[in-house]
């Protein structure tokens, strides 16, 4: 019991364990200076992430430093950076786990830099948009009268694409991709894995439409299966697998060996949910319904 208490206090200690040098990429399109690296001394406490280190610099040493972040818990995918020569999420990278006295922080490679550590992701999102990453339905009735009920999908059908649905669009995969490094028009692992994700969803009927968009020279054929995208993916999505499965999907369709997947039907009735005994009522709304 005493040991456990001691361990808990040591985890939450505010004690400075060591001081590391943050070597940060600086660039501003307005000041006319070429990109450069600037050093900052950062006192490190247990549990500090690279993002915390950048916050420390911005709050105490240099308020002009620009970087992108939001959730601080590896969900939003905003703080992708090139940390000690690997694309990583700054909020998920513990400074002490890097086991280095100098931490080099640069913007993600394979993207244009807007300022300091902020990459321009507009091309990345354009590639994502180009593969129609949404459910496409062909039922004319559904277009006129959009369904309010859910589509029925079995757990097995969900399992076929669930892994790829965990993608947070952080852009690390494209930063690690050796093909994107030379071929800027290559669609990249994220967009291709997402194309596979929607092609494999039984609620979707857009495979034929996506096929036209994917059968271009800059499509999945450019992937050499280096696997760097999967290596750097912070969510374990394994986009390289998605790209290979997508190739298989297209090839088997082309050879006439792939049957179209079963289309998820629309639930005819809203499932009635009953409150289990002992579960309290929800608290009253803070905002009134209009």
């Amino acid at each position: 019991m005493a040991d456990q208490k001691e361990q808990e206090t040591s985890v939450f200690t505010e004690e400075v364990i060591k001081e590391v040098i943050f070597r940060v990429h600086r660039f501003s399109p307005d000041d006319g200076k070429p990109p450069r690296m600037q050093d900052y001394k950062v006192p490190v406490k247990r549990g500090m992430t690279v993002l915390d280190g950048l916050h420390y610099i911005r709050d105490n040493l240099d308020s002009t430093l620009s970087y992108r972040f939001s959730c601080r818990m590896a969900i939003c995918g905003s703080c992708g950076m090139f940390i000690n020569n690997l694309p990583r999420l700054a909020c998920k990278t513990q400074i002490l786990e890097l086991e280095a006295d100098t931490i080099e922080v640069k913007p993600l490679p394979n993207y244009e830099v807007i300022k300091d550590l902020v990459p321009d992701l507009s091309d990345f999102f354009e590639k994502h948009r180009s593969v129609m990453p949404y459910l496409i339905r062909e039922e004319e009735e559904e277009k006129i009268d959009p369904p309010t009920n859910e589509f029925l999908q079995t757990p097995d059908e969900l399992e076929r694409f669930l892994q790829f649905a965990y993608c947070t669009k952080c852009g690390l995969c494209l930063a690690g991709c050796p093909t994107v490094a030379t071929d800027k028009v290559f669609l990249g692992p994220m967009a291709l894995a997402q194309a596979f994700r929607y092609n494999s969803d039984t609620r979707d009927q857009g495979f034929e439409k996506r096929l036209e968009l994917l059968c271009v020279p800059e499509g999945p054929w450019r992937c050499h299966f280096a696997g760097s995208c999967s290596e750097v993916c912070p969510k374990g999505v394994d986009p390289a697998l998605g790209v290979q499965l997508l190739k298989g999907q297209i090839v088997f369709t082309k050879l006439g060996l792939k049957k179209p997947h079963k289309i998820a039907p629309l639930a005819t009735e809203k499932p009635e949910a009953k409150r289990r005994p002992g579960i309290p009522e929800a608290p009253p709304r803070t905002v009134k319904k209009e």
Binding site: L211, C215, W221, K247, I250, V251, K254
Partner: peptide, 12 residues
């Protein structure tokens, strides 16, 4: 639609 054919031939 030529790209998948070229790729299949590459594998073959």
């Amino acid at each position: 639609m030529r790209e998948p054919t070229l790729w299949i031939l590459h594998i073959l």
